[in-house]
């Protein structure tokens, strides 16, 4: 299965981290299932028109986070979810984004309880859709 990645050059987010983020999203949404093969570094570099080292760095970071595993000679594959780890940096990013979201919601005048309910509904829908995607 092909992954669709869009690179925004001239962004304040480094290109390797854009790749990491979008592959993580694709895995989370089930577009890339467990055991699926990622494109080869050179192929993806050539498709995205970015330096191969940038793609290699993104793959290394994904591997360190346990999102993918590399089998020498055969390529990079989406790892079993049990192998995934999250470090404090990941959690900080998550907190930062949640805070931004909460701030935005409060600005719109949504109250605390409605916000919590909305969030839990969205999580349920996402998980349901994701399970369907992986079947």
């Amino acid at each position: 299965m092909a992954v669709w990645i869009q690179i925004l050059s001239g962004s304040n987010e480094p290109i390797y981290s854009q790749i990491v983020e979008q592959i993580r999203q694709a895995i989370a949404k089930g577009q890339l299932g467990t055991g699926e093969k990622l494109p080869a570094v050179r192929k993806l570099a050539s498709d995205l028109v970015v330096n191969p080292n940038t793609v290699a760095k993104a793959y290394t970071l994904l591997e360190q986070a346990g999102m993918v595993t590399t089998k020498s000679g055969s390529g990079t594959f989406v790892a079993d979810p049990k192998m995934r780890t999250s470090d404090s940096a990941d959690m900080n990013i998550l907190f930062e984004r949640t805070d931004a979201l909460i701030g935005r919601a409060l600005n719109l005048g949504i109250n605390r309880d409605d916000l919590i309910k909305m969030f839990s509904d969205r999580v349920n829908t996402f998980v349901k859709n994701n399970q369907r995607g992986q079947k």
Binding site: I7, S9, G10, R42, A45, V49, V50, N51, T54
Partner: peptide, 22 residues
């Protein structure tokens, strides 16, 4: 992507440089 090639290029378009330069 062919082995061991080296490239030096000057440019004023930083977004391009960011894409391809390491």
């Amino acid at each position: 992507t062919r082995q061991n090639r080296t490239i030096l290029f000057s440019s004023h378009i930083l977004a391009d440089v960011e894409r391809v330069a390491d």
